[in-house]
Design a protein around this nucleic acid. Sequence first.
DNA 1: ATGAAAGCGCTAACAG
DNA 2: CTGTTAGCGCTTTCAT
Lengths: 338, 338
Amino acid sequence: MATIKDVAKDAGVSLGTASKVINGIHVSDNYRERVEASIKKLNYHVNLNARGLKAQQTNDIAVIVPTLLNPLFPPMLDTIEQELARHGKRMLICISRNDTNKIRHYLEMAKNSRVDGIFGVTYSRIDPILTENMPIVSFDRHFGHETPCVSSDNYAGGVMAARILHEKGSKNLLCFWTGADYDCEPIHRIDGFRDYCSQNKISYNILSYMDYNQVDTGFMVASSDAYSELIKTTVDNNLRDDHFIYDGIFTSSDHVAWLFMRELQSRGINVPEDVQIIGFDGVPISGSGLPLVSSIRQPVADIAKTGINLLLNLIESGHAESATDLPVSFTEGCTTRK
Amino acid sequence: MATIKDVAKDAGVSLGTASKVINGIHVSDNYRERVEASIKKLNYHVNLNARGLKAQQTNDIAVIVPTLLNPLFPPMLDTIEQELARHGKRMLICISRNDTNKIRHYLEMAKNSRVDGIFGVTYSRIDPILTENMPIVSFDRHFGHETPCVSSDNYAGGVMAARILHEKGSKNLLCFWTGADYDCEPIHRIDGFRDYCSQNKISYNILSYMDYNQVDTGFMVASSDAYSELIKTTVDNNLRDDHFIYDGIFTSSDHVAWLFMRELQSRGINVPEDVQIIGFDGVPISGSGLPLVSSIRQPVADIAKTGINLLLNLIESGHAESATDLPVSFTEGCTTRK
DNA sequence: ATGAAAGCGCTAACAG
DNA sequence: CTGTTAGCGCTTTCAT
């Protein structure tokens, strides 16, 4: 493969001159034309490794996600790629599968290859030394005071879910939580839910199940089975005369909302007639655009854009503020009444 | 950031010795331990740019897909990442958005950064010079005699769709094709469909709409609207006394199958009672595991694994054979009768 | 405006 | 077994 040296020789100019042409720095027209001709003739392509070695950076951004099977992430990555491409940067996708070892591995790799920064979606604990001196922005999760975080306005989402369930006639609400509790933004959904209920004297309860290694980002088979069991047990424990004692449920994801709906239906309890359910995320079903269940929709594209802009700022200026108030909205599906 | 030089100095050994330790080449225990201690102490990480420059390769594989919004691709990429990780390679995702310029851009980038190879999903024409001397495996598409291709057994899929529609009672079949026709494997679905119908004396027709820049990989808004129009017109043109003249439809994707179902339903035609529809791809709806429509399922994980193995062989040995017969299966959804 | 040369961090060939 | 050194391709400083 042709190198800059070949180009310089072919064009009869020095290395430095060829480099200038390649990088758009002004040289005399005559020289520039000769170099450009040689580039075309030799089918020259810069070697990004050499350039990266020299410049000590790569224009690569590593994006860590738990899985691509959770429908929240593909559209997020789609927008991230778009934003990154606008800024001449590439996207290196790292799938962590909620595996602490894989995350550590990827973080090391990111350091080794001198990526410019990391956009991280991970609910696992991370050794702080691995993120030292590395520009990193996280979705939903606080790594430390220095790491900016981007997220929806989860508190408002919790308020909205409680309000809508109540306005649509539910009297005894349940918040069924299967996420992480540690340093993460989604936990504020519970606060919003609780505050709305208590301020409006609505009867409610909160059931919370946490597992750092199996938080609700998975859609792994194991995780899905675990949820099903959990939901089955929850329904078992809260039946009175074949009625579920709660008539409005707010779940931590659409996936869980759907599993809940199926479990109730299998017991002859009607959704949404007897029990209404609101999930979280609100990503439409691929191929149809329809919602899977009624849900609080996260502004996925907004999250991606905001997050990437924070990251680019952080890389450039060494500083960026968190943005954890991106507006959510209600999206009506088959699990709430009209 | 610490370099190998720092490590060598700190450990009191030569550069070469430090390098050997880092690369797992045998040195005396005493030296090895000292170097390892220094590595830890200085928090040393290899610079992949330097290594890549030296080795003229990167362990990166570029994967080109049209979009992440088509549900076929996220699970495919998920498996690809898994396979690649097993072989110590990374996945660089390039989203082409069916844009020839973006594809060219990404192909150049891939060359520039000396990726080890490319796994490409693209239905656009590509300047052959861009793929010269670059190990590349494609999904569904033939680039040239040298480029191995991986795909489902599309012919068998076409046969299967026709057979099942017929067995389930449809008498007058339609194959509604919106894909590419050029050098691509999916076109064989039509052959399979046609052969089965003619061999079994089943009445059928094939309606084919092709647009290289808008083939059915998109799920872009524009593309979706275009399909809706096309389907509306098709239904308009094939009504007799408020009946659709076909009672069994085979479409080129689940997305199109779903749009078709909606269009027929909006005219008071019942699916699957009056008209049965079978789509293609068969990816379950995220979050529920349920199929969107009845479909011929592509073995996504198998495609990913086979494709990556072909690519790795190609990289190592310079040669690999196409595999275009990965077995499809029927997955029952709401658009065919029991 | 142009050319010469140093050096980014690493590996591998060679010499000891 | 260990150390020295050349060189991967590029950018950039410093002379000219």
